[in-house]
Design a protein around this nucleic acid. Structure first.
Lengths: 286, 286
DNA sequence: GTGCAGCCTCCCCCAAGGTGAGAGTCAAGG
DNA sequence: CCTTGACTCTCACCTTGGGGGAGGCTGCAC
């Protein structure tokens, strides 16, 4: 139980005096003894090990509060926490890599091969809709709810490009602010009323004929999809659509207000936790 | 040349009001016009594009100062800067991944296969040495200087484990603080004086017999090696040696002061920019 | 004219420390 | 015992990139 001063402790742990005093204040690394009179901090030699651990965890950018909790866990639990943190870091890093690649390509003049914009005609059609104010994660569970309603009392198939289910983002939807999101499924006009009675939870409405500019999305890029965090893909796709609109002299604002940004899902099989449907991101215009 | 208010601009650029005011203050994104009387900021619609770029660059964690410079460059130059920044981020990330893996393995009880500690006997021997105060990068160029002196007037080969050249870090050497670093080559005692005259730039001294605990280092982990930044490998190797010393009840402090941390280089071929010699990291003890 | 949304500046707050000022403390040498 | 020099203390301010709110103007519509 050898006691050492803060300077010696700093050398051994490779932490700065400032850091050590801060960690004391935050309760992360409290000295074994603090002299009442002088205020001098004295550390136990055995604390060096913990200090090294703290230093390494800080290199991983773990907040001090998280480190404090970690030190109170048993090691196996701590390892799992670190692993979880690292998975998070990796996923953020992947998104940023995507963004960096995109920017470098765009600025150096290479027309990026991803995020190619196509257009399509959408006729006037009848829709069965479910609309609610939700946040980012809620958008996906609203979709599951919508699908569940449709599956509960099935109907003749309406799949294929014309009939794909889609969702409309009527406003800004992010992790902390919610906005109106609507899920829609096109139905044949002649059966519309019959179907509306069949699904009383859903609202029947029609939308005018229009065109859409769209960008196909990677399979793993669902909006806060089943597995994860919102992807940078959406941002880049939105950017691509905006750029396309500008290039083609289309004022997207008015149609956007009337028709909203859309995500169309081409469901080919059951949606599970690990497999997500193909989809695209569309900007309507007239 | 449509003018819009800061609120509208914030919506279109997806930046917060706070951020926009800050960017104005820092000269990163200056409004097209600021009303003298009211102080209201008015942006040009065409500035939205730059703002989106700024938003993305901030996601890459580029400092505002760097972004400001970037915006003043032509796009190709900007792309190169972003790419350079991203390479830096990737290399830091790789180091942190290594650290995270190590920690998770260590804490979850798995004895990590890397950083295994061995020991060896070192007899009393004569050394030809070159010692200087250098910083992290300087340590490597000091080594090149040392090698160059030895090669200038070659001698019978003294390679192999006994005769490998090594360097001693007598104090803390980091990127911003320099410490004494010594490069040494063992020579046969019977020829010591002759050789000392042959290499007047080098100092002849002898070191006592001792033992060393060592950890083999990956080939790409040279200290601020030819290609890059200091690797986390050194930190982990040092950790492994410290842990080993503790486990085996060895007080490393005294021998460390007398003999210093060592890096031994097993040069098998020419040292080029892309190939680095095998080496190990050693803690002497008695 | 009046209401209200939008905008302004100013101030304090966060993490995780770095830097320095001014004062108190410890241990060793004279 | 006293001094000196090395250590250490607290306190306060600076950094980056904003967030949050207070209190006060502005611009525009009815």
């Amino acid at each position: 139980m050898e006691e050492i001063g803060i300077g010696e402790f700093a050398r051994r742990s490779r932490l700065s005096l400032k850091a050590l005093r801060l960690y004391d204040e935050r309760g992360v690394l409290v000295p074994a003894r603090v002299d009442e009179v002088s205020g001098y901090r004295y550390y136990d030699l055995a604390q060096v090990e913990a200090a090294r651990l703290v230093a390494m965890l800080r290199q991983l950018d773990l907040p001090l509060a998280a480190i404090k909790e970690l030190l109170a866990c048993d090691p196996v639990d701590a390892a799992e926490r670190i692993a979880a943190h690292w998975r998070e870091v990796e996923s953020v890093h992947d998104a940023r890599r995507e963004l960096a690649d995109y920017l470098v390509n765009r600025l150096s003049g290479k027309r990026s091969v991803m995020y190619e914009v196509g257009t399509r005609e959408i006729p006037e059609r009848s829709l069965l809709c479910l609309k609610r104010n939700v946040d980012e994660r809620g958008a996906w569970s609203l979709g599951k709810e919508f699908i569940a309603i449709l599956r509960e009392r099935p109907l003749p198939k309406m799949d294929g490009r014309e009939g794909a289910t889609f969702s409309i983002y009527w406003g800004e939807v992010s992790a902390d602010s919610d906005g109106p999101v609507e899920w829609c499924s096109p139905v044949p006009a002649e059966r519309a009323n019959e179907l509306a009675e069949h699904y009383p939870e859903l609202i029947l409405r029609s939308e005018p004929a229009h065109r859409e500019a769209y960008v196909a999305m990677p399979n793993d890029a669902l909006p806060a999809g089943p597995g994860g965090n919102p992807s940078v893909h959406w941002q880049l796709a939105s950017e691509a659509l905006r750029a396309w609109a500008e290039e083609n002299g289309i004022n997207a604002e008015s149609a956007l207000e009337e028709l909203g940004m859309r995500i169309t899902y081409f469901v080919t099989g059951p949606v599970t936790k690990t497999s997500a449907p193909d989809c695209d991101f569309a900007l309507p215009f007239t």
